[in-house]
């Protein structure tokens, strides 16, 4: 069974982003980029399934403009077998469009499982996996924290409000990862070297027959109302006085 892992190139989680003063968006020039952390978890899970003999091949796919291949290369350095780069002119392709492009790749590749991140930490949409599952007519399990694969089915424990839920899905299926699924490995130097020779197939998005026009018109991007630091208090008793005055006790 082949596993397809869609990985997104995003601003590194440790970077404090800046909103452009003219409201046109977030400053992306000279900002450190990285693989979306939930996608690292997805790659790791796919690799573990392969190492356990449950999968034959792990294919990383990313949709984006120049330099997106760096992110695919990161997946290859972790251990993925090959990459597919769906090339676009710009970044910021909407989840609905990403899901439609991924559907084309799924139809061409025929994976038994697609593992995505639950959420991209730039747009914070939390949509793409569910949309892809819907378009394919496949079952889905979002927010996976444990996966047990069988012959034709997969049991997935999910982090939901209030606790955990386990679902059993027929394969092929779509999963999205939550933080507790695993701890992704670091790529070792030899594997980084090896990854340079692994193939990345390039497909121009325009050739996949999907309308790339956005459906959401971005009117403005602004900084949220800030908070200012308050005061340090000397003791618990003093704190309680302040809380009483603030009317929150």
């Amino acid at each position: 069974m082949k596993i397809l892992v869609p990985v997104k190139r995003v601003v590194d989680a440790n970077v404090k982003i800046r909103v452009r003063p003219d409201g046109s968006g977030v400053e992306l020039a000279n900002v450190k980029m990285a693989m979306n952390p939930f996608d690292e978890i997805a790659v790791e899970e796919a690799l573990r399934l392969k190492e356990a003999g449950k999968a034959s091949e792990v294919v990383a796919v990313s949709i984006g403009p120049v330099k997106t291949d760096e992110t695919i290369r990161t997946a290859l350095a972790m251990g993925a077998d090959r990459g597919i780069w769906v090339k676009t002119d710009e970044a910021g392709i909407e989840p609905l469009t990403v899901a439609k492009l991924l559907k084309k790749i799924v139809e061409a590749e025929g994976p038994g499982l697609v593992i995505l991140g639950k959420q991209a930490i730039d747009d914070d949409c939390n949509q793409t996996g569910q949309m892809l599952a819907a378009l394919l007519g496949w079952p889905q399990a979002t927010f996976a924290s444990k996966v047990e694969i069988g012959e034709k089915t997969i049991a997935v424990t999910r982090e939901i409000d209030g606790g955990l839920q386990t679902l059993d899905l027929d394969l092929p299926a779509v999963l999205t990862t939550d933080l507790r699924l695993n701890e992704p490995r670091y790529a070792s130097l030899p594997n980084i070297m090896k990854a340079k020779k692994k193939p990345i197939e390039e497909k121009p998005a325009a050739e996949l027959g999907v309308d790339l026009a956005p459906r959401l018109q971005l009117l403005s991007t602004t900084e949220p109302a800030g908070r200012t630091a308050g005061i340090k208090v000397g003791s618990p008793a003093e704190l309680v006085d302040h809380l009483k005055k603030a009317g929150v006790l």
């Binding site: 909407e94 989840p95 899901a99 996996g129 892809l132 927010f143």
Partner: peptide, 23 residues
């Protein structure tokens, strides 16, 4: 935007060809 809403609404959105506005 609960675990339930986040799981179900994008599925509906895709099937009626709509881009969802999250959160």
């Amino acid at each position: 935007s609960t675990a339930f809403g986040k799981s179900v609404l994008p599925r509906i959105a895709a099937l009626i060809d709509v881009m969802q506005v999250s959160d």
